[in-house]
Design a protein around this nucleic acid. Structure first.
Length: 565
RNA sequence: UGGGGCGUCGUCAAGCGGUUAAGACACAGGUUUUUGAUGCCUGCAUACGGAGGUUCGAAUCCUCCCGCCCCAGCCA
């Protein structure tokens, strides 16, 4: 590859190539029209974000349009709370669907008419067999199925029966409408698939208007057709449904979108299945769909993820047809990279250890200047109070420190960020030998920013003035599961066994600098040397601040320490 | 013994008959640093599931084999 071509660094993917080719060949008169079609039966997760970024991204990139469409064909599982959460999440991710939201339920009348059309063409029939009997007749992957005894009802009888189904004359499950295709097909989806079933349930939008509802397979392709979608992008498991959609659309002789399948996202150490996430919520293994440990959009948002970082992640993972599992490290990297540029640095001591500066005047308070973000000069600086009694992090002191530990230890010196160099003179312990306090001296000549501050000290610690500090609760999150692929556990429904008992550690007595009591819920910060944190959107109060750890900082010392032990 | 897919570095993933087989994350080393952070530099697939074949030339084409995933909901 030569220099001129190196400017094109955006990784492409096969779907983008298809779209480009179609534009070049004028296949759709240059149009690009995609759609994101979630079922409102749960909250969106990072896997949906991949699809959202793909569909909306393609439309944006090629000047097209992407519809947000709710695939609401099953009233027993769908709820309005889910549609609201989905709308919020897609919007938060930064995408725009124009002024109209689409619903498959808006097409129920048209879908019904199309079913009638198929009956009239003698390629659909009303089935009286029970669900079990239908299954028995279906055969197996290696054995052809058997025709239903009701397969050859007359068009007139089918028309009559189907209308009576619609009118509510039959009980749930008593009859279904089936397509008449091929009971011997190698593709199970073509063995006379069910098109309509009777469900006398309240629909979140159509209420009690209908007592028959189209199956997904009889709604999805036509919905795309109605909306003149050009590229119907979906996941791999629908690949063998494509012949059925093609059959329906061609039999109906309507606009025929092009379906393209890609591999859904898998993320290590978590689950990306709405069914299983619902189970986590219902069994109370997490605090809700938006628990910061959840891989849901709302969980990630509450955890402190930015829309930008999620979009970046979706761009980086690529789009292909090979099943794969992406490492959590990539997602975390995307967040760190984003927040490194924008998050204000503040100091928070999570596990406080008191330090008394014996040679610092009692009652004296200095206002020291500290940069808000070394990556962004525009962010300016702030004043932080310094006094005789401070808190430092417990893990920043070791009584018997190894040579490579360049933090505080008896007789050793360390720099306090934006303040002075201090030296540990004495370790105070309680009767059971726990370290309760450190007596230190400070070097008045080492004041940060001063003329004589140049003395080099290997370690720099974050700290907070005891009398000025605010107390806060900090929730330390890590991955929800101990297994890289918790779904591997065959059909065993006990997600419990794979759960990480340490996915949440609550720190109640953290000491944070005063400015952190004036945050807004949802604000994100870097707690110097500790990681990126987010003021909890639900529980944060300035009188009782609560922060969530979004992601740790890279920690080279932790690696060294681990190697050494 | 059915149908549909997929196999390129630890993890993703470009590659579309002629490339020293991109890039990112991870990892390792060095360097800057009042965050052991960030930044910067360096290293990291003689090799593309395997075996044959076509070709002057194959990760890319053909054949066979192996492995993995999906499909038997009146779920989507």
């Amino acid at each position: 590859m030569n220099k001129e071509n190196e400017t094109d660094v955006t990784p492409s993917n096969f779907i983008r190539e298809v779209v480009k080719d179609d534009i070049a060949s004028n296949k759709w008169e240059g149009r690009v029209h995609t759609r994101f079609p979630p079922e409102p039966n749960g909250f969106l997760h990072i896997g949906h974000a991949k699809s959202i970024c793909l569909n909306f991204g393609l439309a944006d990139e090629f000047g097209g349009q992407c519809n947000l469409r709710f695939d609401d064909t099953n009233p027993t599982k769908e709820e309005d709370v889910y549609v609201q959460s989905i709308i919020e999440d897609v919007k938060w991710l930064g995408f725009d669907w124009g002024d109209k939201i689409y619903y498959t339920s808006d097409y129920f009348a048209q879908l019904y008419d199309w079913a009638v059309q198929l009956i009239k063409a003698d390629v659909a029939y009303v089935e009286d067999l029970s669900a079990d009997e239908i299954r028995e007749h279906r055969g197996t992957p290696t054995q052809a199925g058997k025709d239903s005894p009701f397969r050859n009802r007359s068009v007139e009888e089918n028309l009559d029966l189907f209308e009576r189904m619609k009118n509510g004359e039959f009980a749930d499950g008593a009859k279904v409408l089936r397509a008449k295709i091929d009971m011997a097909s190698g593709n199970l989806n073509m063995r006379d698939p069910v098109l309509y079933r009777i469900i006398k349930a309240h629909h979140h939008r159509t209420g009690d208007t209908w007592c028959i509802y189209p199956m997904y397979d009889f709604a999805h392709g036509q919905s795309d057709s109605i909306e003149t979608i050009t590229h119907s992008i979906c996941t791999l498991e629908f690949e063998d449904h494509r012949p059925l959609y093609d059959w329906i659309i061609d039999t109906l002789d309507v606009y025929h979108p092009q379906q393209i399948e890609f591999a859904r996202l898998n993320l290590a150490y978590t689950l990306l299945s709405k069914r299983k996430l619902l189970q986590l919520v219902e069994e109370k293994h997490v605090a809700g769909w938006d628990d910061p440990r959840m891989p849901t959009i709302s969980g990630l948002r509450r955890r402190g993820y930015t829309p930008e970082s999620i979009r970046d992640f979706c761009e980086r993972i690529g789009v292909a047809k090979a099943n794969s599992t992406v490492e959590m490290a990539l997602l975390e990297h995307c967040l760190r990279e984003d927040l490194n540029k924008r998050a204000l640095r503040l100091m928070a001591v999570l596990r406080p250890l008191k330090v008394v500066l014996v040679n610092y005047p009692e009652g004296q308070v200095e206002e020291l200047d500290s940069p808000n973000n070394p990556e962004d000069p525009e962010a300016g600086s702030r004043k932080i109070p310094f006094s005789r009694e401070l808190y430092i992090e417990q893990e920043d002191f070791m009584e018997d420190a190894p040579k490579k530990f360049f933090r505080l230890a008896p007789g050793k010196e360390v720099r306090l960020k934006s303040a002075y160099i201090i030296k540990c003179e004495e370790v105070i312990k309680d009767s059971s030998g726990n370290i309760t306090e450190l007596r230190c001296t400070y070097d008045p000549d080492s004041k940060s920013g001063g003329a004589t501050a140049g003395r080099k000290i290997k370690g720099t610690l974050h700290w907070v003035s005891a009398q000025h500090a605010k107390s806060a609760e900090v929730r330390m999150y890590s991955h929800l599961f101990t297994k890289e692929n918790p779904a591997d556990d065959k059909e065993s429904s006990d997600l419990k066994s794979a759960l990480n008992p340490e996915s949440l550690e609550i720190l109640k007595d953290c000491k944070v600098e005063p400015a952190l009591a004036e945050a807004q819920p949802g604000d994100r910060f870097q707690f110097l040397r500790m990681g990126y944190f987010c003021a909890d959107a639900k529980n944060y109060l300035s009188t009782a601040p609560v922060f969530n750890r979004a992601v740790t900082l890279r920690d080279t010392w932790a690696k060294i320490a681990k190697k050494g032990s």
